[in-house]
Simulated assay, not measured.
Amino acid sequence: MRTHTVMASPVGDLTLVAEDGALVRLTMDRQKHAPDASDPAELGERDDDGFGVARTQLGEYFAGTRTTFDLPLAPHGDPFKQQVWALLREIPYGETRTYGELARALGDVNLSQAVGSANGRNPIGIIVPCHRVIGSDGSLVGYAGGLDRKRFLLALEEPQAVRDARLF
């Protein structure tokens, strides 16, 4: 059984969808590849009470007091996408990886474009941190939520020492 809730955040409204107690989607308003919000089968019943832990953890993340999430996740996708999304969860808070680095971790540098496609279709944004993937030259590229949001999330995760150094 699917249920959903909508919560406000610094990056706009987030829609969280759970299925049998595990989070299957976290999408932002106006996000590419988001499900049709008017389709009841995609979202299920609204249940604002059933997402307390997820709401709390996301609130802590946006407040800068949480660096990892401890939630049951069940993203739907083919085996390759599942592999990519698992690698995304291994990228530490405050760090980034390139598409090429993820492709090499999968054993084939030629998979960079496929990694990018799987990254762009990540159904559980923020918690599965696809925003931590950047271009090979360090540029911010390809974020389904929009580059302004990617910039915001990366700045939020930037180590305090780096932020302090920018003041001088």
Rank of each mutant, 00 (worst) to 15 (best):
R2M: 05
H4A: 02
H4P: 00
H4V: 06
M7R: 07
A8N: 12
A8S: 15
P10I: 04
V11S: 09
D13P: 00
V17M: 02
V17T: 01
A18G: 07
E19N: 14
D20C: 05
D20S: 08
G21R: 07
G21Q: 07
R25F: 08
L26A: 06
T27I: 15
T27E: 13
D29A: 15
R30L: 14
R30W: 13
K32V: 06
K32P: 00
K32M: 08
H33R: 11
H33S: 10
A34N: 10
A34W: 09
P35C: 12
A37R: 15
A37P: 07
S38F: 11
D39T: 03
D39H: 12
P40V: 06
A41S: 13
E42W: 05
E42G: 03
E45P: 02
R46P: 01
D47V: 01
D47I: 05
D48E: 15
G50F: 00
A54L: 15
R55S: 13
Q57L: 15
G59R: 06
Y61P: 04
F62N: 05
R66C: 04
T67P: 01
D70V: 13
D70P: 02
A74P: 03
G77R: 11
D78N: 11
P79F: 03
K81D: 14
Q82E: 00
Q82H: 08
Q82Y: 05
V84E: 10
V84K: 08
W85G: 04
W85Q: 07
L87M: 09
L87S: 06
L88M: 02
R89K: 13
I91W: 09
Y93W: 13
G94F: 05
R97V: 12
G100M: 07
L102S: 04
A103H: 00
A103D: 01
R104H: 08
G107H: 03
V109N: 03
S112C: 05
Q113M: 08
A114Q: 15
V115N: 07
G116V: 00
R121T: 04
R121F: 10
N122T: 00
P123T: 07
P123E: 04
I124S: 04
I126K: 03
P129N: 01
C130A: 14
C130G: 15
C130W: 07
H131R: 13
R132A: 05
R132C: 01
V133L: 05
I134M: 08
G135W: 06
S136L: 07
S139L: 08
S139N: 13
S139D: 11
L140R: 11
V141E: 15
Y143F: 15
G145C: 08
L147Y: 04
D148Q: 12
R151C: 03
F152A: 15
F152L: 14
L153R: 00
E157Q: 12
Q160D: 11
Q160W: 10
A161R: 14
D164M: 14
A165Q: 11
R166G: 08
